[in-house]
Computed example of a mutant assay.
Amino acid sequence: MNSFFQHHPRRLWAWKSPGGQVKNQIDYIKINKRFRNAVTQCRTYPGEDCGHIGDHVPLVAELRVRLKEVKKKQQPRRDWSVLQGEEIKAAFEVEVRNRYEMLEDDIEGGEEVERVWNNIQTVLLGTVEKVVPEHRRRAKQKWMTEESLTLMEKGRCCKWNRRKYEELDREVKRKCRERKEEWWNQQCQEMEQLDRMHLQRRIYGKLKEITGKRNSTRSSTIRDKQGNVLMEVSEVLEGWAEYVKELYDDGRGERPEIVGDLEGPSILQEEIKEAIKCMRQGKSVGEDQVSVEMVKAGGDYIKKKITIWPTASMIRVTFQK
C-alpha cells in the first residue's frame, strides 16, 4: 500500500545502505483488495527511533474499517390464530401423526432419546411450514392500503433489479401520498360534521384518536413502609435496596447435606398433559424454534411421544455439599 500513495521521496524509502548513499523502497504492506479503500494513509518515518531495526525505517499504515453487523436469519412469523379452528387443528394433528410415523423412530429401553426429540422438532417445524400460514404484514399507518403493502412486498423481492425497484418505490410513495391526503380529508370532514352537530366531546375524542395522545395513568413514585412518598434520589435507591433485600431474603438456614442417588417415579402422561395445558401461549421460541402452540396443536399423539422422551431417560441426581 505504500506505493499506492503519492508522497515526497523521503516518505517512501524504507531502507538505506550502510553508507547512506543508496535508499530504496523495499518494504511493503500488502492488503486484500476487498479492504484496499479502508487504508487512509501509508508512509515511512525516517526520523523515528524504533530501536534495533537495522537499516530499515518504520513503515506505518492507517486504516479505517467499518464492519457490518451480521444479522441472523429470522424465522417467519406465523399466524397461530388459525389453529383455534377445529378443521385446521385436526389437519395439523393428522399431518404430525403421518410425518412421525414415516420416521419409524420408536425406541426401546431408553436408547437414542436425543433422536426422539430431534424427530419431534423436525415433525413440528415441517408441519407448521405446510399448515400454518405466515403472519401477514399489517399497515403501520392508517392510510396505507393492501395495494400499497403488496407493492412494498414486490419491491423487497426484486431489490436485485435496481430499475424495477426504483419504479415500484416511486409508485408506492405516490399511492401513499394520495391515500394519506384522502384519509386526512376524510377525518376533517368527520370533525366538521361533528362540529355542526355540536358534539364537542366526540370532537376531542377524535383529536386524541388522530394524534395518538392518551392520558397516562402510570406513576413513577414509590413509598416507604409508612406510606410516605420518596422524592430524593438517595431515598429512592435506599427504598429499592430494602425492597429487594426483603424480597430475596432466605431464612431457611444452611442447606442440609444429602449424599446418595435419588431416583424418582416415572413421569405420567397425565402430568405431561396438565403441564402443556398450563403453558401460556404467545411466548418467544428458543433455539429449537418449537413454540407452545405447536405442541398443543400436536394433540394426544405428540403428547404421548413427549411422555416417552423423559421417562426413557430417567436421570440420577446426586446432591453433595
Rank of each mutant, 00 (worst) to 15 (best):
E257K: 10
G205E: 11
H8M: 06
E246G: 07
Q75S: 11
Q320T: 14
T145S: 14
D288N: 14
L151R: 06
S219T: 09
E114H: 10
R196F: 04
W160I: 09
E246N: 10
Y243L: 15
M152S: 10
M197F: 01
K33N: 12
V244S: 10
S291Y: 06
K159P: 02
I276T: 03
L149S: 09
V295P: 02
P265I: 00
E129H: 12
L207G: 06
R223V: 07
G264T: 14
M191S: 02
E242Y: 01
G85K: 09
E95R: 04
Y204M: 14
Q200T: 15
A297H: 11
V57K: 01
A275V: 09
W183D: 02
K154I: 07
Q21W: 01
I26K: 10
H8Q: 12
K164S: 07
M191G: 00
K142E: 11
K23S: 09
S148K: 06
I308S: 11
T127E: 00
E101K: 04
Q269E: 14
E112N: 15
M314G: 04
K206Y: 01
Q84C: 05
R137G: 07
N98A: 11
S17H: 02
E153H: 14
K89H: 14
C158N: 08
L59F: 03
V172C: 04
R66L: 14
R214H: 10
K296T: 00
D49F: 00
G54P: 02
I26W: 07
E153C: 08
V116S: 03
V295W: 03
E190I: 12
E166W: 13
N119G: 08
G239P: 06
V39F: 01
C157G: 15
A14P: 05
I88Y: 02
T122D: 12
N98T: 10
Q6F: 03
W80G: 05
L247N: 04
L63I: 11
R36C: 07
A38V: 06
T217E: 13
W160Q: 11
I258R: 06
Q84R: 13
F5W: 10
K304I: 02
R177P: 01
R201F: 07
L149Y: 05
K72G: 15
Q84W: 09
